[in-house]
Structure formats: C-alpha cells, structure tokens
Amino acid sequence: MPKVVPEYKKIAIEKITNAAYDVFTNKGYHKTTMDDVANEVGVSKASLYSYFKSKEEILQTVTKENLNLSFTDFFDNKDSLNPLEDLYNYIVEFEDTIHLNFEMNSLSSHNKEISIVNKDLYEKKIKTLTNFIKRNQIKGNIQTNINALTIAHLLNAVYIDLCMQLIIGIDKTKIRESWNNSISVILEKDTQDNQKTLNKYFSNF
C-alpha cells in the first residue's frame, strides 16, 4: 500500500502545496516532476495522487493559495500609496515566484480548468486594484480625471511589465527607473498638483 500523508486532508494538502511551491520556484514548473514534489513532502508519489490528480492541479492550487493572495494582500483595505512600493520590493526580492504566474497563464490555452482559475484570479486582481485606486482618489493621492477601472488596468500592465523585465534579465536600476516613471503617470492628478503628489509618494522611500 502507498504511504499515506499522516495529517488530515486539509493539512496534508497545505503541506503538499507548500512543498510544491518551494520546488516550483527553485526548479521551475516544467522541470519539476511529481517525484520531486513527493521527495520534498517526504511521501511516495502514489500518496500525492490521492490528493491531486496531476502536477497541473497542484500548480492550480499553489497559484490560488500563494501567488494571488500575496498580491491582493498588498492592496486590500489600503488607502495610502505605500502598497505600490511594497509590491515593487516584494517582486524584486522574490522574483523566482513570478515565473509561476507566467507558467500558470501559459497552461490556460490547453487546460480549461486552469483557464477558469486564471480568469477568476484576474478578475479579483482588477477588482482589488480598482477599489484601492478609488480609495486613494478619495484621499487625493491619485488623479480623478481617469476612472479607477482604467487606472487599475494600467497598473496591472505596469506590474506585468516589471515581472517580464525581471525574467528576461533587464538591469534592476533600469527597472526601478521604469517603475518610478510609470507610477508617476498613474499618480498624476493634474499639471499644477503633479509635483506635490509625486513628492508625497517618493519622499517616503
């Protein structure tokens, strides 16, 4: 009989996904095997299949539980501009994790279940960003002449561009400059108050 993970199902799944997250970020999703995950957990491969039917299903759970939560946690219920800098520092410090987002997205073209998960994650991300921007527009931190949803899409595009630059190895000094310039456009309220708004953001870091 295959060795069974000794925890209850919920705890066992959490243990497996945490181990898979470590292996995926170290080796990359495509190079990781179910044997690699099993070895990281300390169980047989057969035990993994009693909880997950495939490596793709593990990635699906890892993305939902780890990557999306880490993104939305930066912006939920925040009405200051600090989360923008916190997000930048997180991405740069833990750049290995962003590969999983791109690999997860690439699987959408041939996996309907993962496509559904990705759509759900995307919608939650845009909703979180939109609400964050609305709160900061009320506070006077972000321009109001562009609606919050549009700015949310722009901010998400800047985030994706930052991730791509890190993946392909652009110099981090140039990435930082690109981020600052992009954020300055998003924060810009009007031509007269522009410099005051930017100073308020950048003087904190």
Rank of each mutant, 00 (worst) to 15 (best):
S109C: 06
Y201W: 11
E57Q: 07
L154Y: 06
I126S: 07
K64M: 06
K200R: 12
N131A: 07
L67T: 05
L107K: 03
G140Q: 09
D96R: 02
N180F: 00
Y122M: 13
M1P: 03
R135G: 05
I151W: 04
A148T: 11
N105C: 07
V62M: 01
K15L: 04
Q165C: 04
E57M: 03
L162T: 11
V43A: 04
D96N: 12
P2K: 02
L81S: 10
K124E: 15
S182P: 02
K196N: 13
T72V: 15
L107S: 01
A19S: 11
V4Q: 04
E93P: 12
E56H: 05
T97N: 09
Q137D: 10
I91N: 02
F74L: 09
K78N: 10
H153F: 15
I114E: 04
S115T: 04
V41L: 01
K10L: 02
E56L: 01
F52A: 02
L187E: 08
Y88H: 12
D190V: 10
K27Q: 06
E14L: 11
T33E: 14
N39I: 04
Y51V: 08
T63E: 12
L84E: 13
E65Y: 02
I183N: 12
I160L: 11
M34P: 07
A12H: 10
D22F: 02
